[in-house]
Design a protein around this nucleic acid. Sequence first.
DNA 1: AGCCCTTTGAAGGTC
DNA 2: GACCTTCAAAGGGCT
Length: 534
Amino acid sequence: MPQLNGGGGDELGANDEMISFKDEGEQEEKISEDVSAERDLDDVKSSLVNESENNSSSSDSEQTERRSQPRADIESYERAREYFTEGKSLLYLQMKWPLLDVPGTATLKDSRSPTPGHLSNKVPVVQHAHMHPLTPLITYSNEHFSPGTPPSHLSPEILDPKTGIPRTPHPAELSPYYPLSPGGMGQIPHPLGWLVPQQGQHMYPITAGGFRHPYQALAMNASMSSLVSSRFSPHMVPHHPHSLHRTGIPHPAIVSPAVKQEPNGDLSPAAHSKSPGPTKKEEDKKPHIKKPLNAFMLYMKEMRAKVVAECTLKESAAINQILGRRWHSLSREEQAKYYELARKERQLHSQLYPGWSARDNYGKRKKRKRDNKIDSTPEDFSAPNKKPCVQYLPQEKMIDSPASSHSSMLDSPATPSAALASPAAPAPTHSEQAQPLSLTTKPDRQHHPHFSLLSKPSPSSSISTFSSSQPSISRPTSSSGSQLTPPLLSRPLPFASLHASLLSPSSPFHQAALHSHHALFQSQPLSLVTKSAD
DNA sequence: AGCCCTTTGAAGGTC
DNA sequence: GACCTTCAAAGGGCT
């Protein structure tokens, strides 16, 4: 498997072998194409970054302007994130987005999906075979992600949450694990990476009047604007209503204004947070700035459709379990891609919403009734609502599925790189600072992993454990704290559909281990092998 | 209509 | 520092 990084360590420059489930030959061909495309992108981005650096000198006035146009920023961010997190976009994005003039997220999705059921990412859409949906961001060639401290002039400006004054990013924001290099994606949140998608195709609508970047400091200048604009014919360039960012890029972290946003209110979280004593009514009108997606969420968002496509499963709970397994089975490099994306996401988010806190969203969702879980009893194994995953039934030939013709499309890469200390580790936030990659195999608490009908082996103890040439690191936190208490799902998951190939790595060791437990796997509800016994 | 389920990660809070 | 809680996405299931 060719690597893009040329000896500088296992930088993020990897490729997207993780995304492609094709056989190796195809992968290599694909990688070759991607490398070529990346070169083109590199050239463009290099010039763009230089230009944006020039623009950064005028960031003061621009930032003032930006704060006055929070909605615009929000919209920009939304589109950008929607773009790079959704694999579905590539095929029709160019045609649809320039025509968009609707501000809301929901509307945006609708616009992008003339027939939502058909084009929504909730439906297994045929994805671009040669284009990683994240590739616009993951253009990490060696030269773009060579280890080392990024030049100070490339350090993204971050507004101090309290003062609003641009400041030098905190180490937690500029992870030493993700050294940035000049010329590439050095400015991690630099949306040019999003604006310059694969193969020179520009995904974002650029207004005739010029492109305005969400970030002043990173703003694209006129030459870039014209560069990108030239990719669109004039009729493709929408005239954005006053409510829409000049880029026409809505913000993904904001729920649709029609739903929760104040029609003409200031969407800036900073503005909200600084407004003296907002009334409850005003609180209700606050826009819901969503949390930036973490690495796993980004991974899920990308891979869900593939899993769904390969399986008749529709329940997200089951899909997520599969994705959780696959996440653990990813190599460090592969995970690192998503950690990096997530870091960019957070960084971008923090720049757009300097005053935003995750706490702001507390209560946005009704508190989950975890108490119910504790009292939950083991599910009825004979529950009838099992949906077989046809492609992965043990005896079933998978040749019917094009994607699975080579091997299970859901087979994990199974390229554990235990001794690998990837520089592309997740941002050193919290405990991950000590454990960069935070290979978050769940701790199996007191019990040791054995498959029991009554106990619930943790992911680490069951399937994921088999992939533990990777270090198994207990989650420092526990969302699972409460989640670990209930050993079983409240509903039986259609385990018949969760063939081992869906859940497990595919290394010989994994397979051997799986084989020994195969009968149990087949006969037990998923919950019995996925949740750790407590 | 809205919550639940399920996953991991991030962030904030508490002790 | 350890631990806990909540939320982020997703969509079928459930109340």
